[in-house]
Design a protein around this nucleic acid. Structure first.
Lengths: 333, 333
DNA sequence: CTGTTAGCGCGTTCAA
DNA sequence: TTGAACGCGCTAACAG
């Protein structure tokens, strides 16, 4: 690979001059500029980005921390949005792997890892739990940071999220309007921020419709199909059963499978409404609340670039929408 | 962030000594080593990887080119395997985004992009078409490279793939053994290497069972559910219909949906066998040939690391397996 | 065993 | 308008 020195010699100028044309600095005679550019083309030269990073402290790279390893129906779509924006702006993506040998990310610190690799900013996704202390250093640092679905702000940190509270309200309200008064909720771990917000929306609508809240009909579980399945099995064993269930998509799908496996059907016996609208949901004809995952990624990337460029860093909250499919029906009191 | 100089001063040694303890070079007195290590800990110091890359020409980073942008049921799982191995070995992953502004990857060249970013090796995935010319430069270069599902070898290049030919044979043979003699195939674009191999396997078994080959029952289409749906619609309109269909999973699922939408059922009216065993397949209870996608990723990452370390670089071909579920039935001649 | 010195490839003053 | 010289943080001979 040719270096800036090679080009300088071939063009019979100093490397400083070459550097100036590369970076489009003014103060280079048009003639020599042309010449340098030509030599660069001829030698298929492109400045080495590592050396450049070392001296500019800028890498045109966005780091991503993602404990879910993309093994998740949700964040895969988010990733697409991030990729699109980064590509358009000339950034590549550094996906931080989870190193076993150094005690993993948390022990070493997100800030250190990011600075060490000289990424220009980081996106934190898939950290659902509400234990913000491990992010303290990052929030206090000057590393441009954007959290997805965790409303943390800091010196150079902000977040993007869907409007979980209102999305949940839309879901439950829809159920109520169809005549349901006995509504269960199967949701994520109690420690998860998004799960809490959705639960708040759920309760809020119950109040609104003056429906009494039954704690036996609320299930907290891991975000896995099997967990939704098990929760539904418990519901099926109750003497007093709900007529409708609100659950995040993957859990809703688990519930649907449990219902079918036990000889019941959807929506005849139970109405189900989801939250997320993951790809799988369409295959189950699941009525659900759609989160625009691609836009979540786009927004996160755009926001981190804004912070990098010292523009505003206001959090972004995305609207959700009701997607009516076939798992909810009207019931008559 | 502390630098090696800061540590050297604090420890009252030269930075060369610090460098030696960092890199675990022999020839440092145990005592000074302890001291340096202690100072490093105290100052939360970790060597800057960019500077280190500049002087060592090694970055502990594996690059990935993936035109499918992970927006694909298949490569998402592959990615997990890559991530696992890279993480265990201390490598991060640089995901090359598709830049619009520089004429995209192909115009600028995979080799240049890789060298420019100083990645230690690259994995090429999701390049299905058989147009190998655009890889010529990469194959001739000394950049350690591993292709997934494209049997290209070069100076420092090799590949991993599933045994598509034998996998396809297993699938079709299973159908034949169930008594099917009228078998259609819905497959990917004719230009795709994996599609060709599977088609060869298909034909091979037809010969083996002395079944005449009917070209009207072979459909080439994009790897999209809708394409499988449309192909099946055509089959449904034929007067002489096959009794079984062999198709890659996403196409098989499209076919199943078409069959159901038109009032027929699986496997009563048509037996369907897939290839891939993507996540979605289980939800359709699709009998299929499983590719170990996670292992494909693991193997690719291990192979590229071997090449980097000048070990052997023999191609890896992974076995496939038959996963019996509910979409195939025995028929009586 | 330890320190000095010279790069790695590029950006950026500051003179000329 | 151009170039010499220094610095980014670290590694790698080579001396001492």
């Amino acid at each position: 690979m040719a270096t800036i020195n090679d080009i300088a010699k071939l063009a019979k100028v100093s490397k400083a001059t070459v550097s100036k044309v590369i970076n489009q600095h003014p103060g280079v005679k048009e003639e020599t500029k042309k010449k340098v550019l030509r030599i660069m083309k001829q030698n298929n030269y492109w400045p080495n980005s590592v050396a450049r990073s070392l001296s500019t402290h800028k890498s045109y790279t966005i780091g991503i921390f993602d404990p879910g390893r993309l093994n998740n129906f949700f964040f895969r779509e988010v990733f697409e949005g991030i990729e699109r924006v980064c590509g358009d702006k000339g950034y590549d993506i550094l996906y931080f792997t989870d190193k076993k040998w150094d005690g993993s990310w948390v022990d070493f610190g997100y800030t250190e890892i990011s600075k060490n690799r000289s990424v220009d900013g980081v996106i934190m996704m898939g950290f659902g739990r509400v234990e913000t202390s491990k992010f303290d250093a990052l929030l206090a640092s000057d590393m441009p940071t954007v959290f997805i679905d965790l409303d943390l702000v800091g010196k150079n940190a902000s977040y993007v999220t869907s409007d979980n509270f209102n999305g949940a309200k839309t879901a439950v309200r829809y159920l109520c309007q169809l005549g349901h008064e006995k509504i269960a909720m199967i949701t994520g771990p109690n420690g998860f921020k998004v799960a809490r917000e959705r639960f708040s929306g759920f309760q809020s609508v119950l109040d609104e419709f003056e429906i009494s809240y039954n704690p036996d009909w609320v299930f907290y579980c891991q975000y896995q199909l099997e967990a939704g399945y098990e929760a539904m099995k418990k519901i099926l064993k109750m003497r007093e059963k709900p007529t409708a269930i609100f659950a995040e998509d993957i859990l809703a799908i688990g519930a649907i499978r449990a219902i079918r496996d036990h000889g019941f059907s959807v929506p005849e016996d139970f109405s189900i409404i989801g939250f997320d609208d993951i790809e799988l949901s369409e295959h189950y004809d699941l009525t659900t609340i759609r989160q625009d995952k691609y836009m979540l990624g786009v927004s996160a990337a755009e926001l981190v670039l804004k912070i990098i460029n010292k523009k505003n860093s206001a959090p972004v909250i995305l609207k959700t929408g009701l997607v009516k499919r076939a798992t909810c029906r009207r019931i008559t009191g």
